[in-house]
Design a protein around this nucleic acid. Sequence first.
RNA 1: GCCUGCAUGGCUCAGUCGGUGAGAGCGCCGCACUCAUAAUGCGGAGGUCCCAGGUUCGAGUCCUGGUGCAGGUACCA
Length: 480
Amino acid sequence: MYVTTTIPYVNARPHLGFALEIVQADVLARHHRRRGEPVRFQTGTDDNSLKNVLAAEAEGVPVRELVDRNAAAFEALREPLELSFDSFVRTSRHPGHRAGVERIWKAVSHDLYRRSYEGLYCVGCEQFYPEGPCPDGHEAPLQRVAEENWFFRLSRYRDPLLDLIGSGRLRVEPAARRNEVLAFLRGGLDDLSVSRSAARARGWGIPVPGDPDQVVYVWWDALANYVTALEDDDHERWWVREPRKIHLVGKGVIRFHAVHWPAMLLSAGLPLPSDIVVHDYVTAGGRKISKSSGVTVDPVALVRAYGADAVRWWLLREVPRVGDADFTEERLVARADEDLANGIGNLVNRVVTMVHRFQDGHLTRPAGDAEAGGAGRDLVDVTRRAGRLVDAALEDYDFRRAVAAVQAIVEAANAYVERARPWGRPPAEREASLAVLVAACRELAVQLEPFLPSAAARVAAAVGGERLPAPRPLFPRLGR
RNA sequence: GCCUGCAUGGCUCAGUCGGUGAGAGCGCCGCACUCAUAAUGCGGAGGUCCCAGGUUCGAGUCCUGGUGCAGGUACCA
């Protein structure tokens, strides 16, 4: 499986919305690795965006300096968010990127032509609009600007794309998003301007091969990273032979990924991705997160305050498949205390404590069939089923459902403790019931791994080995 | 304007191909328990499944219209 995130432009530090995407990708990568499948998980940054140039100008620092500094902040998400990406691509630094973009440009040249483009240009947005006024409400009137650019015959790919996406050979998830793309395609496609004058781009970006006055449209530059980062054997292995190629993207960039990118690949004669998985946005206290408006949530600060477990858990447990998720620290704390401290942590703690109190920390016999067939039946069933439910949920990219399958073990185990009441039973029965519980906790650790890797390791350590370590709370209580 | 999606108990949400009396968690009330991080378990109250039509033996679940909200509308994860 080859799984990617989008590469964000780096005009600012990363925010919680990107953390959502990269944690989802991380879960998929860890899950498939655990099943023994080869996995390559890639992320990176879009260094060549004009927005980076504008941000640097606003700060009065060289573009190179700003881009390097902010890109480093994205790469540094690895530790706090416990990410397992295999490669981090920066479009201005990766050795093969520029050559790769040039190669693709040449491969699609049969679909390129020069045309003079005349449009209404908003200085505030630094972009063209087909008609006024500027949707962001900038004061300055739109200027009529004429520029000659390279155009790509996108219109040619409408029918092939309808077929690919409609048939599911190119899977767009969730279905609501697929329908959106199909509706857009049915509406028809215009050819696409795929270069900019180098002057307007401030000379930043990748020059068009054979036409140094133009730079490659930044989206083409950025999208290409999914293949340009794969060099030599890797290209063959991960882009040509690998059947499962998954792009995780935000809802705002669906068209680039489900329309422009596949069209580009078709034109270039390259294989297509298999899945495009679309997530919605995270809002902050009811307001849209936006770098420009200053409404932002710093995932690293959250991890410092509450820990990686709480942050990852919130992103996976609280964010619905369709619809924006509203983030507040109160919700993060409530979720973590309820599910992690009171749920997983308390369960493991009470089980380990009993093993110590009644068994001196070790079990002498495995869980017997009698216990598994009696009061422990539910627990054994739920535990046994959890792995399959996680598999199925992640096949649907339903992270919430996947996490719920893990939690079901905790609920069943707590219910079993109340029913079996190990403290009130004769020693042999007591040990049998504790053995069932310890087995459930071990499976819990296994199933938790893709979601909360370090916490899963702590659970495994707490219920592992001949003699269990002394009980210790696994998750701090964050509230109150 | 156009396009798309959403609208289920106080809050956050599940509800697969339409089918036995509509669900979960949180919050609230009560009970139980004491192994556990004032944790856990059980039970209860609480809903005209946005509105109006329609299809059907039967619709939260399909169709039409309306209302409200959100997003997109071509360089925002």
